[in-house]
Design a protein around this nucleic acid. Structure first.
Lengths: 313, 313
DNA sequence: GCCGGGCCATAGGAAAAGGCTATAGCAAAA
DNA sequence: TTTTGCTATAGCCTTTTCCTATGGCCCGGC
């Protein structure tokens, strides 16, 4: 029988550590609730598999050989990793987490989330919705903190985002194309205009979402992030950005998708630029979506379709 | 039956990794030379032990669940540690290494080593003698590269050395007390003196053993390392230090133990200071010495007794 | 100097785990 | 619809693992 595995078992390693720490086969056997001959045999088997003597037997117990002391180090490393695994998976019940979503600051993502939760039958559940920085979205999905992420991609950040996703084993799935709009206060003179141009914005404070230490242009949530602006304000909260639109007469560039129940003081005006915003979701390439995630994406499509935006895919 | 161990086996973890990488139970079974139902059962058992579903079965193979993808990370960590252990212990024959010794630069340590090897019956053997820095001696013994180390301790470095040894699980065993001597060229005017004083040395180059990056006074091989000297030369080799005694008329402070077959141009002269040099060996507290190590220490005691130095312990 | 207790090793049998073959069930591709 | 290529189940056998009982050895106490 051709075996690839070494034949050393976790149990033997655990037994050995206990024996080494107790300095006694009998004591270790007692500690681990096995018979002494079992422990004795396990040690013998381990030594024979390694082809080395690990223990010096005497009438007062056992002591480590040089090889044994060295092996103990490696053994502890292995068990440490196993302990990590076990404390993560054993003992605690399977998580009730049905879905985690990380997203850029889009109100449609929230609206869809609300609908998805409303449609959930389960008596007990655990959902999470994290509106956060672009880099953290990718990180959340990569580490499975979230099952999917929502972000935009365009010609400018495409290469950077795609490489990052590829290296993380993630895939971008386009959802829809949005036309760039500016979000401004209803009181702003531009609010009554059909369209706005970049020139119109020159003297207004530009509001952008803070991207923390990964403050590259490529991670900006807003298109045209490389254009300079005389007044620049970074915030981290969607409510805050609305406050600043009103209080400071600021603007931000986004998808224009704005739901009725949002702050009535905020309006979206199409921006005259030759750019599109491609919104999509990211997830692990090899992991199929759970049903719950599929339901969420369906809600996203429904919500977005309600704005008359052309869906992709 | 109360079991402490989780019941997860290394084999299951290895199997799971293979399944995850192949995306197929059948393929993984083939790769590892087991029957497909065996692999199927192993995965089922693993999932039941973890209380979570790791794989999504379909007619085209399996894909990971979210839990499965996360578990894969932990699983890889465990196997990585096991691989380290196996490549260290499996496949290669038990070492023929009978004894490794790390020591400060003492000719008596070499003399005893020679005698010990001469007295060895084995047709094949592997010995090592490393004359090295103080810090490396402790490190060698701690990591079991050497079974024992030889170094000196006195009132000055005692606290530092003892703490370092304690933290490493090592114990210092005194061997003997030596009187400080200076080693100088036979041509040096001091060579004919009965005793020398520190004042006599003021204008001579002081030769000390280089301690590398751990260049603390506490690790110096020579006593009185805190006294300043106008000319200071650090070397790493015992032959070199002798060359410099002759060529540069330098001196170093050591035990005075100097064997006949050493360079006849070097002489030792007692130094008038109120200090002693306590030489001892260090080893792991919990690991008993091998016979070979005991033989070496016996030779050390014999060699040293030949100089009329009072033994300790 | 002999006995008792503590320790590790061995023996033999029982239980459990893990392996195999054969086959069923199922879903996608042809 | 049929075929193909998966995974799951059933039944059986082999191997491993664990148990109890016992033996031998060394050390310390009497």
């Amino acid at each position: 029988m051709a075996r690839r595995t070494s034949g050393i078992t976790l149990q033997q390693i655990q037994y050995f550590i206990e024996v080494a720490e107790e300095g006694s086969i009998t004591a270790a056997a007692d500690m681990l609730f096995v018979a002494q001959p079992t422990m004795s045999a396990a040690m013998k088997d381990l030594e024979s598999k390694l082809g080395r003597s690990l223990l010096l037997r005497s009438a007062r117990g056992v002591t480590l050989t040089t090889d044994g002391a060295e092996f103990l180090g490696y053994a502890r490393q292995v068990i440490e990793q196993v302990a990590l695994l076990e404390q993560r998976y054993l003992g605690r019940p399977p998580s009730r987490r049905l879905l985690g979503v990380s997203t850029q600051h889009y109100s449609f993502a929230v609206d869809a989330f609300v609908e998805m939760v409303k449609g959930t039958e389960a008596a007990e559940y655990e959902f999470s919705l994290r509106e956060t920085r672009t880099w953290d979205i990718i990180e959340d999905v990569r580490t499975l903190r979230s099952e999917l992420g929502l972000l935009y991609r365009n010609d400018f950040n495409r290469n950077v985002i795609d490489k990052l996703l590829r290296d993380s084993g993630l895939t971008f799935h386009p959802l829809f194309l949005a036309e760039p709009h500016i979000f401004i206060s209803r009181k702003n003179p531009l609010a009554s205009r059909d369209r706005a141009t970049l020139a119109d914005l020159a003297d207004l404070p530009r509001l952008t979402f803070d991207q923390g230490t990964n403050n590259s242009f490529y991670f900006a949530e807003e298109i045209l992030s490389t254009l300079s602006s005389k007044r620049e304000i970074r915030v981290s909260d969607r409510a805050t950005i609305f406050n600043l639109m009103i209080g400071l007469n600021g603007y931000t560039i986004s998808t224009g998708l704005i739901s009725d129940d949002l702050d009535p003081e905020i309006v979206a005006v199409p921006l005259d630029v030759d750019e599109h915003i491609e919104i999509g979701w990211i997830g692990h390439s090899t992991i199929p979506l759970t049903e719950q995630a599929q339901r969420y994406l369906a809600e996203v499509r429904t919500v977005v379709a309600g704005f008359g935006v052309p869906l992709l895919g």
